[in-house]
């Protein structure tokens, strides 16, 4: 592909005691594309996300982020440093701040794009803090409207339905204006209608230049939206390619699609 890569994994290996959750996984994610990671349960998909976002540190391998000239290495960086570089993520088992309202949850997403410190809170007349909080509020409002959760703004997050919580988590991730978005099974538990809306939304985000790395089980979601698909099985990459090519790959059919097709 002639496109420039934004994320570059080289031989990433992660072990948990005796279990090798990722064994020497390498692939690249091109800027502005939707790349899906698929694989059976326990294949290591979530572990891969945890390594990229700094939640886990891989034992071996390199993870580079950014365009060629200014690439940073992510291995060894803390999650908050990686978030600052422009990677936002969601979680397979939604991790919203349940006690906080929907609006507050989304505002926490703007944390990396704002700077007000302790003194700004005490000294309320600084222009910067004032403008900044306006900007954050505005951003949160627009995202809530876009994801059709603005009516829920003042509800505590834990009171929402599953599908609503997924959208709040997505809005929270987007509130940080990321360069790259990691979505861990965003369609899980959604209705057919919600799935369709999600797919349209992902395509719209790509249109706006966002790069998306997506973990998804539902092939009806993966195949139409993905530009590129990476297949993991037992921690190893067994194939990668366009959705069509991957679907026809014999090993993939055996390891994954074969089971689903039965």
């Amino acid at each position: 592909m002639p496109d420039e890569s934004l994320l570059d994994l080289k031989a990433v290996t992660k072990r948990f005691g005796g279990v090798t959750a990722l064994s020497s996984v390498s692939f690249e994610v091109s800027k502005g594309k939707i790349v899906s990671v698929i694989g059976p349960n326990g294949a290591g998909k979530t572990t891969l996300f945890n390594c990229i976002s700094g939640v886990l540190r891989p034992e071996e391998g390199q993870i580079g982020f950014g365009l060629k000239k200014t690439r940073d290495s992510l291995v060894g960086c803390a999650p908050h440093e990686i978030a600052r570089m422009g990677i936002a993520r969601t979680f397979q088992n939604i991790r919203l701040f349940g006690q906080q309202t929907v609006l507050e949850n989304i505002l926490t997403g703007t944390y990396v794009r704002t700077e007000a410190g302790l003194l700004d809170a005490v000294w309320p007349w600084t222009r910067r803090a004032h403008q900044e909080s306006h900007w954050a509020m505005d951003k949160a409002m627009r995202l809530m409207e876009r994801l059709e959760i603005d009516a829920l703004a003042d509800r505590p997050a834990k009171a929402l339905s599953y599908g609503q919580q997924r959208r709040v988590e997505l809005a929270r991730a987007l509130a940080s204006d990321p360069e790259m978005l990691l979505l861990d099974e965003p369609a899980a538990g959604l209705t057919v209608h919600e799935r369709q809306a999600l797919m349209d939304f992902l395509r719209a985000l790509r249109q706006e230049g966002l790069t998306i790395l997506l973990i998804e089980h539902d092939m009806k979601v993966v195949m139409p939206v993905s530009d590129w698909v990476v297949v993991l099985d037992h921690g190893a990459k067994i194939a990668e390619g366009t959705p069509d090519a991957v679907q026809r790959h014999p090993q993939v059919i055996e390891a994954y699609l074969g089971v689903a097709a039965l």
Partner: peptide, 9 residues
Amino acid sequence: LAAGCLGMD
């Protein structure tokens, strides 16, 4: 953990 992933030190 979620706070860390949102860029909070």
